[in-house]
Design a protein around this nucleic acid. Structure first.
Lengths: 130, 130
DNA sequence: TGCATATGTGCGCGTCTATGCACTTACTAT
DNA sequence: ATAGTAAGTGCATAGACGCGCACATATGCA
């Protein structure tokens, strides 16, 4: 026979919610949470956008700077930035005839770095650090 | 390691100069890295798949278990699992007439948790801490 | 004023993707 | 064998997505 159906519980170490009353933490992430998460990921899941966001982890930048570094056509960058703006991942500020973009949430920095880090690990075939 | 002051000043003047002090992470991710990263993210950027992966962060599970918890139709789950398998994010092992799925890379656990965590913050307001 | 720079936007097209349906294969128990 | 359960697969369709193109604003400067 077999080893028993592993009925292990999904979570246990994740949440850090000691006392909040409500639904508490996603022992089982509800669909809204998953939708939100997937939404964010969808924004990251595009090379050009990811590149843009990555650059922003180093601080605010203008569209021109972002465009130059990304190597993508202006219109394309503009559209991607628009999407990031509409989904609330980035903030904009106007300065003369420039528009300066920045990451809205500090959490994104971690996420993006983690992502790049993981990918780097995959590409170089090396165990990663940190 | 080193870190950078992010979120503070207009850190303009970005350049692709490779003379910057080397760090653990790539200063400027090349297209291959971005492609890889985006590829992984694309796999995560779907509510059902994310749910499946999230469950796997708690340990290996059979298709039936995954299906039950995700609430999605069997075929759909199967297809998503197939995709995850083909992209190498998960591993499979056969046990009787069950197929047991598990995350291949421990790094994914971090990435997934970070993602869910971020989304949770977005949904439950904006604590933004940690 | 006029012109160049800087950025954003509506539109059409080709491509990718998730889903549901029907079918097949693999294993188990009777 | 036969039936039942577990899991995977090919196909067709509808919708989302990225991109290029042309055009529209906005700002700064001569």
């Amino acid at each position: 026979m077999r080893s028993r159906p592993l009925t292990s519980q999904p979570d246990s170490a994740f949440s850090t919610i000691p006392e909040e009353p409500s639904v508490a933490h996603p022992v089982v992430p509800d669909s809204k949470l998953l939708e939100t998460a997937a939404g964010t990921l969808r924004m990251l899941a595009e090379p050009t956008r990811l590149h843009l966001l990555w650059q922003l982890t180093g601080g605010p930048k203008t569209v021109t700077e972002l465009t130059d570094a990304s190597g993508a056509p202006r219109t394309v960058v503009s559209q991607h930035l628009a999407k990031l703006r509409l989904t609330g991942l980035v903030d904009t500020r106007k300065d003369g005839r420039h528009v300066i973009y920045s990451l809205r949430d500090g959490h994104l920095v971690r996420l993006i770095r983690e992502t790049i880090n993981h990918a780097d690990h995959l590409v170089t075939g090396e165990p990663a650090h940190d």
